[in-house]
Simulated scan of single mutants.
Amino acid sequence: MADTMQFDLVSPERSLASVPVREVRLPGTDGDLSAMPGHAATIVTLRPGMVILVGADGSQSEFAVTGGFAEINADSVSLLAERGHPREEVTQDVFNDMMRDAHREHRNAQERRDHAGEEFVTAAVKMLGDMQAIGTHIGLDPNQSTVPD
């Protein structure tokens, strides 16, 4: 079995990474998981969180994603993020923008509660919590962005 697998991360705006890795840690909607060479083929829905790559040399890099999908195979992981940024690009302003989007989704879910159901409001509340956790992980202040547009 190979020691590394190919990892590709793209968002609608750009390609964020295309590198060999020995491990990818993903924020799955059903729980966090790690993919390594030889992993069973699966498709994973992602929640907002940090994607952590472990390179062949043991170095780590992180990307903040707001959700998306990952296709895992024995020799590759392809991730399509709704929105993604390398950790070093997530400034307070970028994070505030991401939080405004999350607040907007929460507000829309509350407005559609009668038509869409309570589970959409619950999912939106969880998404806000996940987004706040990203900011805390990076060392940003989630309270600076609590007022939605």
Rank of each mutant, 00 (worst) to 15 (best):
D57F: 11
R87S: 06
G84K: 03
Q144E: 10
K126Y: 05
A64G: 10
L16E: 06
A2K: 09
L16R: 09
D3I: 01
I72C: 10
A17C: 12
R104Y: 05
V21L: 09
L80N: 10
K126I: 07
G67D: 07
H103N: 14
G58C: 10
D97P: 01
M36F: 11
R104N: 08
A41P: 03
M50N: 09
G28V: 03
M36E: 13
S145V: 01
A41R: 14
P27N: 05
L9W: 03
F120V: 04
L16P: 08
S59A: 15
S61L: 09
F7R: 05
Q110E: 15
G55E: 15
D57H: 13
A35W: 14
L80E: 01
V54R: 15
V90N: 03
T122F: 00
A56P: 12
H103R: 11
V125F: 02
D93P: 05
M1D: 13
S15Q: 13
M1I: 09
R25W: 01
S18H: 15
R47C: 03
R83M: 04
E111C: 07
H137D: 04
A17Y: 13
G129L: 06
M1N: 10
G135W: 00
R87K: 14
R22G: 02
P20H: 08
H85D: 03
V19I: 13
A81G: 04
S59I: 12
G49R: 05
G28R: 08
A35K: 10
E71F: 04
D130N: 11
D93V: 10
T136P: 01
S18T: 14
H103L: 12
M127T: 12
S61T: 15
G49L: 04
L16K: 09
R100T: 04
E88V: 06
V77T: 03
M50A: 13
Q92G: 06
D75T: 06
I134C: 02
T45K: 15
D57K: 15
E88N: 10
V90P: 05
R25K: 11
E111L: 13
N73P: 01
Q144F: 00
D3G: 08
V125M: 05
R87G: 01
G38S: 08
G129N: 11
R113F: 03
R22N: 06
Q144K: 14
L128T: 02
L26Q: 10
D93F: 07
S18K: 11
H115C: 00
A116K: 15
R113Q: 10
G31K: 08
A123F: 00
K126S: 05
I134H: 02
S18L: 09
A102V: 05
D30Y: 07
A109Y: 10
P142F: 00
M5V: 01
D101F: 00
M36H: 12
G49V: 04
A40K: 12
G84N: 06
Q110F: 03
G49Q: 02
L33E: 12
F69V: 15
G55S: 14
V19R: 08
T146A: 10
Q132C: 02
